[in-house]
């Protein structure tokens, strides 16, 4: 680099740029958090949904599935599974409940998690709640997720 551009100038760009853009990020974060109630479906965030989220977590569902596009890419997107299953929590529960313990020969299959009916309901309600989050452009692009 040319001598007219000194190390001091580079250092100032680093400190100035980092501090400035970090402050902008914080500002936008505050704005985002404030405006979330318009889109985040928090009016339907019941205790049952919260329990469902915990079940989602402790069974490591994200280890195979994506949820709103984030997670593993081994199994279908579940952010819109409630819509895909005909807006039926019963269908979601039945799917999870009747997974064969030893899987399906030659194919990917979901483990049998042995959830109770109460847990199944909570998990299904959680997935229904996530489906209710208003994503931009109504992502995913279509019902297949």
């Amino acid at each position: 680099m040319r001598e007219t551009f000194t190390k001091g100038m580079a250092r100032n760009i680093y400190y100035g740029g980092a501090v400035f853009f970090f402050l902008v990020l914080i500002g936008l974060t505050v704005d985002t958090v404030k405006s979330l109630p318009k889109t985040d479906n928090s009016e339907n965030l019941t205790e049952q949904v919260a329990a469902g989220k915990r079940l989602w977590e402790i069974n490591n569902c994200i280890g195979c599935h994506t949820l709103l596009g984030e997670g593993a890419y081994f199994a279908p997107e579940l952010g819109n599974v409630y819509t895909r299953f005909g807006e039926s929590t019963e269908a979601i529960k039945a799917f999870i409940k009747y997974r064969p313990v030893d899987g399906i020969p030659g194919r990917r299959s979901m483990p049998q998690f042995n959830l109770t009916d109460e847990q199944l309901e909570a998990l299904a309600q959680f997935l229904k709640y996530v489906d209710g989050v208003k994503t931009a452009r109504d992502w995913p692009p279509n019902i297949q997720g």
């Binding site: 680099m1 551009f5 000194t6 190390k7 580079a10 250092r11 760009i13 680093y14 740029g17 980092a18 853009f21 970090f22 902008v24 990020l25 936008l28 704005d31 985002t32 405006s35 979330l36 889109t39 985040d40 479906n41 709103l68 596009g69 984030e70 989050v133 208003k134 994503t135 931009a136 452009r137 992502w139 995913p140």
Partner: peptide
């Protein structure tokens, strides 16, 4: 000098670049 300018660009682009994860998760 190189190091400063590289990390300056990393943070200038990368901090708000976080926004590329906020497209479809219910954020503005």
């Amino acid at each position: 000098k190189w190091l400063y300018i590289i990390i300056a660009m990393a943070l200038i682009s990368g901090l708000l670049g976080t926004g590329h994860h906020f497209f479809w998760i219910g954020t503005p």
